[in-house]
Computed example of a mutant assay.
Amino acid sequence: MAEDWFRVGKVVNTHGVRGEVRVISSTDFSDERYAVGSELMIRLQTNEEVSVTVSHHRIHKQFDLLQFEGYSSINDVEKFKGCTLYVSSQYLTDLDEDEYYYYEIIGCSIMTDQGATIGR
């Protein structure tokens, strides 16, 4: 079965000289997605996919700052600027009842209290 990947953020810049990247997160679960040991995929602007493992995560102002195993200098992560971060579907956790991931509800029809159907 093909693996599905879900966007969790975008690398907008580097931070410092020790290999941290500044990420604008698009996930509601940043603590879980960016936990030490989490595996992510970065899609480079050449469409090449690079697997990375989070070695450090912290929040600075409105950004998530991440460092990856094996990437210890600014020179190593410069190529990630402007790239998108993804998490594999195998790492998605079950949500509570009546909670859904966006991909689960896109394209669904909605029934209003008045009986009207919105959508498809």
Rank of each mutant, 00 (worst) to 15 (best):
R22Y: 04
T46V: 09
H15M: 00
E39C: 09
D98G: 01
K81A: 00
F80D: 03
V87Q: 10
D28K: 14
S72R: 12
K79N: 04
V21N: 02
K79Y: 06
V54W: 11
D76L: 07
I110N: 06
V52M: 10
R58K: 15
K10D: 05
A35W: 12
D4N: 15
Q62Y: 12
S73I: 09
S51I: 00
Q45A: 10
I106N: 12
F80W: 09
K61L: 01
V36D: 11
K79L: 04
E78I: 01
Q90N: 08
G37C: 12
D4M: 14
Y71A: 09
R120G: 15
V11R: 07
E97F: 10
G19P: 06
H56T: 06
G115Y: 05
D4F: 14
R22Q: 11
V77Y: 04
I74G: 12
V50F: 02
Q62P: 00
Y86N: 04
N47D: 14
G16F: 04
Q45D: 11
I110W: 14
R43P: 08
I106V: 13
D98M: 00
T93M: 14
S73K: 13
H60L: 09
Q90Y: 03
D94G: 04
T46D: 15
F6M: 00
V17Q: 15
K81F: 00
E104K: 08
R33D: 15
T27P: 05
S73M: 06
G119V: 09
I42N: 03
S51H: 13
M41H: 02
E32K: 14
V12W: 02
D4R: 15
E49D: 11
Q90R: 10
H60P: 02
G107H: 09
T112K: 10
T112Q: 07
V77G: 03
I59E: 08
K61H: 03
T27F: 09
T53I: 13
G37I: 08
Y100Q: 01
K10H: 03
D64R: 10
I106R: 13
E99V: 04
I106W: 07
T14N: 12
D76M: 08
C83R: 08
L85Y: 05
S38Q: 11
I24R: 07
A116I: 13
Y91I: 01
Y100H: 07
V8W: 01
K81M: 04
V12S: 07
Q90L: 12
Y86Q: 05
D64M: 08
K81P: 00
R18C: 12
T14K: 03
I74R: 15
F63V: 02
E32P: 05
D113W: 04
S72N: 15
I106F: 13
L44W: 09
E78Y: 01
I24S: 13
I74H: 14
V23A: 03
D4E: 15
D64P: 00
A116C: 14
H60K: 11
V54P: 06
T27G: 05
S30D: 11
Y34N: 04
R18S: 15
S26W: 05
S73A: 10
F80P: 02
S25N: 06
T84A: 00
F63H: 09
V11S: 02
T112F: 12
